[in-house]
Design a protein around this nucleic acid. Structure first.
Ligand code: NAD
Ligand code: NAD
Lengths: 224, 224
DNA sequence: GCGAGATTGTGAACCGTTTCACAAATCGCG
DNA sequence: CGCGATTTGTGAAACGGTTCACAATCTCGC
């Protein structure tokens, strides 16, 4: 284990391992080998061990991994060992699904405040929270200290909201709007795009050959 | 352009290019160079050209790409040129956000039927649809012929629903439940996991060194 | 205490994707 | 028509992540 950059796919898988481990813990299992993790996660044992090797040594040769021990370690790595407050912007359809989602709590991710710019919505209850004015976001986060924000507003408002989130001190953004966000280098953005996912499935859903090819698509000045 | 396997990241980017092109089309722009696509998409011009090269030649040297022409080509590649019907299972929070989402329509993705197993919900309206009994899914899809299904049910029901979807003729599944699905080889699964996304952000949101390391985590029989 | 069996951690090989760099193609203009 | 400016398409190189394979480590039972 050297002090090296951790691949993002590794971090994503860490969250999967954590889920598997929590399930096992629930079931009263004390120890798991990388082989068994493979069974439950669909990720190869070698990959699992390599992933962990970025952070240290957590297993015992000949035995495997202590389930509660590894849970604690992965939680620490992912900063899920202490409560992680999150700002949600956009009290619409997506926002509504998110505030009520109980699984976040199990990972100590807590939506600590909801913001909108619609005066009709501001002040209304939203899950267990009350919708607040987006104009007050910086002020509110001075108390909360959230480092993660979720953008669930229409695409045309996303950049503006991203700027506000960054100004409020957020360094990680989960973006549901179909737009490329421009943010300072120190801010990490992850885009969630159902359309993209469905497009990939759409491509694979049909096996027929494509009708696009050289001589048809290239051509005269009427072009493609 | 040889007949080769297309990387999944390429397909994902294709959906992004399509969005950029549709925006440009909306704005009345007739032609775009790979350089300009880079500006709008955040994806490098070289990457863009390489991505397209898997499918043919679509541009004119010295000019660029015809916006409407390329839109048509990418839509054909992604099978978004004809209406793509989709089955949604789970009339809950996520399902609710999806049925009302207008952007799907712009890509000819249409949620053609919604299913649930809750007798209280079956028969109720859901968006413009009526919630149907999951038990009838195969029968219903005999008419619809959808090849894509969305799983928006609790994790413990996801595998069972996946089996039903496959039996109903679906070859692509978008899975929102936090579980690994076992499906036949010809079926493609894409998982959407907000938890995973947030975990990655959580990791990056703090720059402090980890407290995990060799001598602490490895050790005596009290172990990790 | 020791040998058999199990399992980890990791350098090295492998493989697929991204980036680079340039020849070939097209356009506009004099 | 020809030349300079522009931009494409694509082999080849660079890069980064995954897989492999094995020495090192640990447990258990005798
Ligand atoms: N609903 C879906 O299934 C779905 C799927 C994929 C992507 N998305 C994307 O997610 C985003 C949210 O979708 P939704 O369906 O929840 O939309 P929505 O219209 O239901 O909700 C958007 C909310 O954002 C608020 N808002 C608008 N501008 C704002 C601003 N400047 N500051 C603060 N709040 C503002 C609105 O008042 C509204 O409450 C959109 O970008 C959409 O494209 C949604
Ligand atoms: N809500 C969120 O923000 C969120 C976030 C991430 C992941 N998810 C995941 O998405 C999935 C759906 O979440 P949700 O919040 O919409 O849940 P939900 O409880 O609101 O809705 C689930 C729906 O599925 C139906 N259902 C249950 N078993 C079924 C079966 N066997 N066949 C058909 N229908 C069945 C239920 O009747 C219910 O209507 C869950 O797996 C959840 O973990 C949700």
């Amino acid at each position: 284990m050297t002090e090296t950059h951790v691949p993002i796919p590794t971090l994503e898988r860490l969250a999967i391992y954590l889920r598997v481990l929590l399930d096992a813990h629930e079931a009263g299992i004390q120890t798991l080998s990388s082989q068994e993790i493979e069974q439950h996660s669909g990720i190869s044992a070698a990959q699992f061990r390599k992933d962990l090797s970025y952070f240290g040594e957590f297993g015992k040769p000949g035995v495997g991994y202590s389930v509660p021990g590894l849970i604690q370690c992965i939680e620490r790595i992912l900063r899920l060992d202490a409560e992680q407050p999150i700002l949600l912007v956009g009290a619409g359809n997506i926002g509504s699904a998110l505030v009520g989602y109980p699984n976040f709590q199990a990972h100590r991710l807590r939506i600590a405040a909801v913001f909108d710019n619609n005066f009709v919505k501001i002040g209304r209850p939203f899950g267990e929270l009350v919708i607040q004015d987006i104009a007050r976001i910086k002020e509110v986060n001075a108390d909360i200290g959230a480092r993660i924000g979720i953008i669930a507003v229409p695409a045309h408002a996303a950049q503006e909201v991203a700027d506000l989130l960054v100004e409020a001190g957020v360094t990680g953004i989960l973006n549901f709007a179909p737009t490329i966000l421009r943010v300072p280098k120190h801010v990490h953005v992850r885009n969630v795009s159902f359309l993209q996912e469905l497009a990939v499935l759409s491509y694979h859903a049909t096996e027929d050959a494509l009708c696009v090819n050289g001589q048809v698509t290239r051509g005269g000045k009427d072009g493609i």
